[in-house]
Design a protein around this nucleic acid. Structure first.
Length: 136
DNA sequence: AATATTTGACCGTGA
DNA sequence: CTCACGGTCAAATAT
């Protein structure tokens, strides 16, 4: 939590204009280095992170995402290893309002209702393909 | 003010 | 019955 709050900051307010660094990396780990702009596989849907846990079984961090829409029983799980850029995305459930407006921008797929993809996606596997010959 | 995001704790299941 | 792991919710915080 770099910018996470921080107890005791006003204490000395001694003004110092210097504020802490301000990193806005969407992904944890890898402070910056500005090397690898790690970006998560945006599927066109918007997700809200509702949890993160370190799975000991695989020694990996798993993040839990859920579709912003309540009518959507779609869930997404992303796991990566502490020190590896590769990401593993696991999709669960299917959206009920279709419209993956691929647009990276918001938009809400809601707009276009059209119900397009209605397939039984139950647990799809998304491999990062990076240097992680993890085969399970 | 609302929304998104974070961390911690709690719960449920399995062994 | 107890312990452990995985998963989800809740509260707090940041923007």
């Amino acid at each position: 939590m770099a910018s996470t709050s921080q107890p005791a900051m006003a204490t000395a307010g001694s003004g110092h204009g210097d504020e802490q660094v301000q990193r806005q990396a969407t992904w944890p780990e890898e402070a910056d280095g500005g090397s690898q702009p790690l970006v998560m596989p945006e599927d066109g849907y918007q997700w809200k992170k509702y949890g993160q846990k370190f799975i000991k079984n695989i020694q990996k961090i798993r993040s839990y995402f859920r579709c912003r829409d309540r009518r959507c029983g779609a869930k997404k799980k992303v796991e990566w290893q502490p020190g590896d850029p590769s990401l593993r995305v696991v999709y669960d459930g299917a959206h009920q309002h279709g419209s993956p407006s691929s647009s990276s921008s918001h938009g809400g797929g809601g707009g276009q209702d059209g119900d397009g993809n209605r397939y039984e996606l139950s647990a799809q596997y998304f491999g990062g393909g990076a240097p992680t010959p993890q085969a399970r």
